[in-house]
């Protein structure tokens, strides 16, 4: 387990009583008919037709430099939401997140376009993550090689919609992992591609960990959490249920999930 001397315990992320609330439009009632929508408009009241989802409820923790922190919890427990809030991508309802530098989510999926060639997507994804054109030019070849897209012919010059789902996932991971980060957050990225590619990506994540100050990993795979993390936060229904060394928390978690 990670042991911190008091001297080198430098915090990189501090969450202070963090609450996140999503607002979902048009989900107020089960009835989606026009008359139901009309009656919602006619009825007075604040924020008609908007349903609030309280995804993260008062979570506080401090993450230190050099830590690899796993986030576990059942589906919909607020793990991904918490990561987005740390990255400053989702505004907090109340409470605050303090960070050192700019935390980054490992993922560029949303910036890529299926109708463009893999080549253009590498450039677009890199730019979207804030890399400069020179950086992308330097790393272009290694991104393509890492993805292994061209192992079976010249696929990188074809539109991404022609890729198999595994190929597309590999290219996305390769683009996302090309950048160095201060605080890196990985959301279930370990399960992409075939066995060979998984090994390669686990290795890359270990490298990224060395370069990054702090790594957060969301996963439902307890094994990959054990392999990569030394501390685990357990979220359940948006609340922090447990925070501690990997083994202790995972033991409780496995008891809870009945494994």
């Amino acid at each position: 387990m990670a042991e911190h001397n008091t001297e080198d315990a430098v915090p990189t992320v501090i969450a202070d009583e963090l609450h996140i609330v999503y607002r979902v439009h048009g989900a107020k009632t089960g009835k989606g008919s026009a008359t139901a929508a009309l009656s919602r408009i006619v009825k007075r009241g604040e924020e008609r037709g908007v349903r609030k989802v309280h995804a993260v409820k008062g979570v506080s923790f401090v993450a230190y430099r050099g830590e690899a922190i796993g986030l576990i919890g059942s589906n919909g427990s607020g793990k991904s939401t918490l990561l987005r809030a740390i990255a400053g991508l989702l505004p907090a309802e109340s409470g605050k997140v303090y960070t050192n530098g700019q935390p980054s989510l490992l993922g560029v999926n949303a910036a890529l376009m299926n109708d463009l060639t893999g080549e253009r997507n590498v450039i677009l994804g890199g730019l979207a993550m804030g890399m400069s054109r020179e950086e992308i030019r330097e790393r272009y070849q290694s991104i393509v090689d890492f993805s292994g897209i061209n192992e079976k012919g010249d696929f990188i010059t074809l539109p991404m919609r022609t890729y198999s789902s595994g190929m597309a996932a590999r290219l996305r991971f390769s683009i996302a992992a090309a950048k160095d980060h201060d605080v890196l957050m990985i959301d279930e990225a370990l399960a992409t591609g075939d066995r060979k590619f998984q090994k390669r990506s686990e290795e890359r994540i270990r490298e990224l960990r060395k370069e990054a100050g702090t790594v957060f990993l969301v996963s439902h795979n307890n094994k990959s959490i054990r392999d990569t993390c030394d501390r685990v936060l357990w979220l359940e229904r948006g609340e922090l249920r447990m925070d501690g060394p990997t083994e202790e928390v995972l033991k409780e978690y496995e008891k809870f999930t009945g494994k």
């Binding site: 911190h4 008091t6 315990a9 430098v10 915090p11 990189t12 992320v13 501090i14 969450a15 202070d16 009583e17 506080s60 401090v62 809030a85 740390i86 990255a87 400053g88 991508l89 989702l90 505004p91 907090a92 605050k96 997140v97 303090y98 960070t99 050192n100 935390p103």
Partner: peptide, 22 residues
């Protein structure tokens, strides 16, 4: 850890130069 005990989150953030995310 002990040396930072008693600090509020804001004070701790301030001490290490952390800024509000987002």
């Amino acid at each position: 850890p002990p040396p930072d005990e008693g600090l509020t989150a804001a004070q701790l953030a301030d001490k290490y130069g952390l800024t509000v995310s987002g």
